[in-house]
Each structure stands twice: as C-alpha cells, then as structure tokens.
Amino acid sequence: MTPQPTTASADGPPLLEVRDLTVEFRGQTGKVAAVNGVSFDVRPGETLALVGESGSGKSVTSLAIMRLIQRAGGNRVGGSIRLRRRSGDTVDLLAVSEDEIREIRGTEIAMVFQEPMTSLNPVHTIGAQVAEGIVFHRRVSRKAALAEAVELLDLVGIPEPQRRIRNFPHQLSGGMRQRAMIAVALACKPNLLIADEPTTALDVTIQAQILELLQGLQRQTGMSIVFITHNLGVVAEVADRVLVMYAGRIVEEAGVVPLFGRPLMPYTQGLLRSVPRLDMMSGAHEELEAIPGNVPDPTAMPAGCAFHPRCAHFRPSLCDTAVPGLEPADPEHSVRCARWRDVAAGVPA
C-alpha cells in the first residue's frame, strides 16, 4: 500500500467548488443532518477520494452534487455547489433551473451508483440504457447511439459487446453490470465522474480490473473522478487527494502522500490502522485494530467533536464543548481536531 499520486494538476481554477453543503432529512424523529457544512474543491483531471465509515454522508454528498436529493417532505439542501461548465460559465448546481441541471447531468457530471444490481432497469436492454442518454442529449439517431453503445461496452471491457447490447441486466454478472453502469455514466463524456463505491459489491480481482479501467479512462479523457470508498487500500492506489468524512463533516483533507504518511486526525489514524497491510501478512504480529465503538446515531450526535466518544486522545471540556474547526496544518493538509498539534507531535494519548 504505497500511495502513488498520479497526474494531479493542482493549477488552474477548480472544476467543482462545494461550499458549506448541508443536507437535512426530515424523518419521524425530527431533522437529521446527514451532511453538515461540507466544503471542498475538485480540480480538473484529479482523483479525489471520499472516505469514511458507513453512514458518514458520502453518498448523500454525491447525490447532492447530482441534485438527486428529493427536496420533498421537508428535506433541505443548503450551501452552494459551483461547477465550471464546458462553456466556461460557472453555475451553482443548487440554484440552476430544472432544464439546466438536466443538461448538466450525464453530459458534464455523471455518477456510478453504489448498487450495481439494482441500478439498471430490468426491462430495458443494456444497449438501450447506454444509448438513451446519447439519444436524448445529442439528438442522434437510435442506431448511431447503439453503435456508440457497442464502443462504450468494449471500452469498459465487456466481451462481445455486439451481442451484449441486446442483453437484459439479469443476464449479466455483477461485475459486468457495474461495467455497464460505468458505460452508462461515460456515454456523454462527462468531465466529472462520481463513482460511489463502484467496487464494493465485487470480488477482489474484478475490483482491481474496474479500478484499472477507471484510471485508464481518466488518462484518456482527462476527466476528474470523485471516488467514494471505505477501502483505504483502494484510496492509496487511485487517489490524488483524500477527504475523510465522519458523521457528515470533513475531518481531514490532504494529498494522498501526506495523508498516509502523516495522518493528523485520530479518526484517520484509526482508519489506517484498520487496513490490512502487505508487511503484516509476511509474519509481523501486529494486530489489525478496528476503531472501538460505533458511528454515532445521526439523531443523537455527540456534542463537540463527534468522534470524541471513540477517541483515545479525548480531553473533557476541550473536545466535547465546541465542534473543532477545519484548520490548515500545511497548505495542502487540513484537519478538524482540537488536539491535532499534540497528536502530530506524538504526545501519547
């Protein structure tokens, strides 16, 4: 697990600027903030990893970017998500018209969903589902779009694409469906691809193939990728920068090298300790440590630092009063922890 930053182009204006994104769901038990004041940039051509345990708000963040959170029923999406469009204009995705967001979806931002088994429509062929976005956005004939669909299936590594376009989703294996989903997402050549745990449902060899595929596609097209996962091994392999989320907030943000080399937030440290490492398998008897405790119940968030009930560095009245701010430790490394200097200096817990 050696982090290898790929082609990060840090210069130039960001492609996407998320500022103070807040998503509240209204349930029977009242309002739940699934995402709470999240801000980050996505730079052109980079791979940004979004990591965190289950329920930390990764999928909700990405759905908010696609503007796919249903606002009905008292749900609220606040903040701004500014996208630099192909035309050069910058627009706030949360404020644009329905027509404009529809034009952006698929063509400029596309998403591969977490659930490959249920994200394809069972009654339409793979070809039809890949082609329909092309027909809709580019107004080409169905036949031409199907020809493109064949190329796309070939591109994502589906064998016999001519035959496969006539298949229905249930005739494909999980790995093939996820590839088909990627083909659907790539159909209109987006410059931002959000991949929400595109590999979790798959076995290890297929995971590796899909990751390679995404990286290859990125090299060809120069698109940016937001890669969501809770597998830090995958992060080290694909990401340029990493956002660590906990309980709806970003708790650490850094390039992949500093994050793995010098994690500052105790939560990130815990995540890293819970990843199996190659040198461990060769006999070293260091136990894998899971982070003790559980992700907090979103309806009963701990006061102050939401991680404090699980943190070894916890100090009463310092950590459990106010939510710590996201502070820059380095120009490219921010952390949300009241004691990050102590943690960095190795002051024992």
């Binding site: 249920t118 976005g133 159909a187």
Partner: peptide, 16 residues
C-alpha cells in the same frame, strides 16, 4: 427504485 435514480442521473426529461 435505484434504476429510476439512474435514469434521472442521465439527465433525461421527467416525462421520459
């Protein structure tokens, strides 16, 4: 269903 969300994510019109 998830596939309806996929359809919306393609940017199709609500009618389609």
């Amino acid at each position: 269903q998830d596939y309806v969300r996929t359809a919306r994510a393609k940017g199709l019109s609500e009618r389609i």
